[in-house]
Simulated assay, not measured.
Amino acid sequence: MTEGAVAPLLAGVIVVEISRGVAASHAGRLLSTLGAETVLVEPPDGNPLRREPPTLPPANEASALFAFLAAGKQSVTCDLATPAGRAGLSALLAAADVFIHDLRPGERIALELDEASLGSCYPKLIDVSVLPFGAFGPKADWHAEEINLIHASGEGFLLPNGLAAELFPDRPPLKVYGHFAEYQGGVVAALGALSALIGREHGGAESVDVSVQDAALAVGAFALQRLGDGSLEHRQTRSFKYGGVLACADGYVELLTLEDRQWRGLVELMGRPDWMLDPALSDALERSRRGAEINRAIRAWALEQRTADVVARAQALGVPMAKYGSPAEVLSGAHERARNLFQPVEIPGAGRLPILAAPLHVDGAAPGLRAGPPRLGEHQHLLAVKRRRDQPAIAAEAS
């Protein structure tokens, strides 16, 4: 560490991770990016996410998803079906602060990694379970993929909506691209681990039980609130009365005007046309009632605009608007560069590529990625190191 540099937030914290899904893996990645030493425990044939498409050229052997989720982690292999593998994991857990996993209840009992066993053997270890429907209840043993979770949380009921529903009215219910629900579960698990680390300073280690369904359900809190008010949102009705996604001459932007000052900025942005100066439209409720009429005019105007120009003018006027950028545009964007959002790391089989570091800054700076994803078993030596760390305590107990 250079002189004057601030130590990573979780420097000195050791995390052991057993993951097969995105949620637990994302939780480990977030803690690793914040400075924790995160040790990924893999079966002899590797974490299944290593084989998850899409793959990266030139060899097309490296999973893009695994490269992101495992960046900065260390890899050891343990065959948990063997005594030696279980002993290796035990040595890691004895030295760890946090254990993140997506082991199912039956697996935990068979491996003596259930909450009671962990509490007895490793009293200072924080246990974080991340499962599709949580570790307790009638669905604790259920398997689920992302598409199941996005619909189990209610979000799928609302997709596609807005402009997408209008352009493609015959599309079936969809899911958000990628692993939206599982990423939400990973965020909640990481926050749970951080809270438990703080709590451990004032008491014992806690167990954290995360349901990905619950985590994703929280994203749709407004839809639930409106349901409580008697209004059932649906993909055909869930949209802003005006604004939302707009087609421009060279791409798409998103417009959101929730406040009066934002409406007034939009009036200026559009050149103060006569119809927008109608005194009745100074009332937000009236604008809502006439939303379809307003939207027709906004969309016709937007088709004549260039995205970069209209976004710059909108933001100068305090109108919330942003462009939908291509992946290349996101990587080269001035905002993303200023925040050091993407950082280059070495990816085995793919070379040096930029990877998203973290969606946050700590003390005004982006957390740095220490490395790319590890090779399978690259840090096998850690098993011996952790065992040596435990030996004095074991010897003391024996004496």
Rank of each mutant, 00 (worst) to 15 (best):
A165G: 00
S231D: 13
D141P: 00
E112K: 14
A110M: 05
E115R: 15
R238E: 07
L194K: 08
L131Y: 02
A196E: 03
G228F: 14
E206Q: 15
H202N: 13
Q213C: 04
V212F: 07
P173K: 11
P132V: 03
G154T: 09
A205Q: 08
F222V: 15
Q236P: 00
A205G: 03
G186S: 12
S211K: 07
L197E: 07
D102E: 01
L113K: 04
R108E: 09
F240I: 09
S120W: 08
E182P: 02
A116D: 12
S231F: 14
G134S: 05
L159Y: 03
S129G: 05
N161Q: 10
L174R: 10
A215W: 05
E206I: 01
L224V: 13
E182Y: 04
D170A: 14
G228L: 14
F168H: 09
R200T: 02
Q184I: 02
V208A: 07
G185R: 01
G185N: 02
S211W: 03
Q225C: 09
P160E: 08
H179N: 13
R171H: 13
G199S: 08
S239R: 15
R104M: 01
V187I: 10
A181H: 11
A223K: 07
G154V: 06
L197D: 05
I150D: 03
I109G: 01
A144C: 02
P173T: 00
F240W: 12
I109Q: 09
L224N: 07
I150N: 00
G228W: 11
L174C: 09
E201G: 02
Q225A: 15
A165N: 12
F136C: 04
G162D: 09
Y177D: 07
W142R: 09
S120A: 15
I147F: 10
G178D: 06
E155Y: 09
V130H: 05
V187H: 11
A116H: 10
L131E: 00
I109H: 04
D102P: 00
G137I: 11
S117W: 06
